[in-house]
Design a protein around this nucleic acid. Structure first.
Length: 162
DNA sequence: GCCAACGTTGGC
DNA sequence: GCCAACGTTGGC
């Protein structure tokens, strides 16, 4: 199975690329996905080693800020069963098991500059990406290898990359 | 803070 | 199984 490429959205106020970079082992759980399409992408297609465009939404500016890699494949998201979590899910609690899944991702590198949503929309090779489509809210979406490489080129590598 | 888009829920 | 109401996302 060849490596796949993804875009994953997060609000930097909640979880930013710096949070991931500074996490233990620069790895964290991608918890809180509560959308079936996104969950099914994780469950059915996302593999260890797949590369991820790390996207900041509701940010100034919104855009892709770096790259992460999938380090653990889909497994149950325990926050769905935690009444104190903002990701608590009543139906999962009734069921006694989490309906929701998450993966682990590790920090790879941060871009020198954010590849903004505006730049993506204006770029002839990138404006077909799902994230550029109006009303597209899917928080985990597949990306073509060519798109991934182009975004990476536009972002450049930061000094502290590894 | 507004609001369009769109996914989910629940009544029927 | 339809669809109106409701909630959430996320750009602006």
């Amino acid at each position: 199975m060849p490596k796949k490429f993804w875009l994953m959205k997060t609000e930097p106020d909640v979880f930013s690329i710096d949070d991931l970079k500074n996490a233990a082992d620069a790895t964290d759980r991608w918890e809180g996905v509560r959308n079936y399409q996104a969950r099914n992408f994780m469950r059915d297609q996302m593999k260890k080693g797949d590369e991820v465009l790390f996207y900041h939404s509701n940010a100034e500016p919104s855009g892709v800020v770096g790259v992460a890699v999938v380090t653990k494949e889909a497994y149950p998201d325990p926050t769905a069963l935690d009444p104190n979590s903002k990701y608590f899910d009543e139906k999962s609690a009734q069921l006694g098991e989490s309906r929701w899944l998450m993966v682990d991702v590790s920090f790879k590198f941060k871009f020198q500059r954010t590849v903004t949503l505006k730049a993506i929309k204006e770029h002839p090779k990138l404006n077909t990406m799902r994230v550029a489509q109006k009303g597209q809210r899917l928080s985990i979406q597949p990306v073509l290898k060519e798109e991934f490489q182009e975004v990476k080129k536009l972002g450049g590598l930061a000094k502290d990359s590894f």
